[in-house]
């Protein structure tokens, strides 16, 4: 890929119906970045997880709200930011319990965050409940 920065922006109403649209947006950018099929699937999945969390938890399925997905491509990495103004969350409250333990407790919460951390190289967040929540994920591009 040519070594100059490219930026992309998507605003969508906060509805799970739009997750497919978000995945398509990310897939197209990933293709421009030259990501291999497997890596591309993983980036799509991570962004889906982040946006599903915003739609369901930060905004509580309120379709009048908006999810913002920003992407930045340079020669080294693809960086995706998911931005919302919802109620936010306490990163410390997400326990990384063993999967077996979650099943025993009949809970499936926190799987999305676990997934993002496992498939992306970096995951960072800034939380200001009701004002500006931002989750930034980076996937480094493999050099030939």
């Amino acid at each position: 890929m040519e070594n100059f920065e490219r930026r992309f922006l998507l605003h969508v109403p906060s509805s799970t119906e739009n997750l497919s649209l978000i995945r398509d947006f990310v897939a197209n950018i990933g293709k421009q970045a030259g990501l291999a099929e497997t890596e591309l699937s993983m980036v799509e999945l991570a962004v889906d997880e982040a946006c599903a969390n915003v739609i369901e938890h930060a905004y509580g399925l309120d379709q009048t709200k908006e999810v913002i997905v920003r992407a930045r491509l340079d020669g080294d990495a693809i960086t995706i930011e998911v931005v919302d103004t919802g109620k936010g969350w306490d990163p410390g409250s997400i326990e990384q319990k063993e999967l077996k333990r979650l099943v025993e407790e009949r809970r499936s919460g926190g799987l999305g965050m676990r997934m993002m951390k496992l498939v992306m190289d970096e995951v960072e967040y800034k939380i200001k409940p009701g004002e500006h929540n931002e989750l930034r994920m980076t996937k480094k591009l493999k050099k030939d």
Binding site: L19, R23, L45, D48, E49, A52, L99, L102, V103, E104, R106, R107, S108, L111, G112, R114, M115
Partner: peptide, 16 residues
């Protein structure tokens, strides 16, 4: 395609 929401469905029923 499957995301954690789909995996969560498997998890929520298996113990029962």
């Amino acid at each position: 395609y499957i995301s954690s929401a789909g995996l969560g469905v498997f998890m929520s029923f298996i113990e029962e």
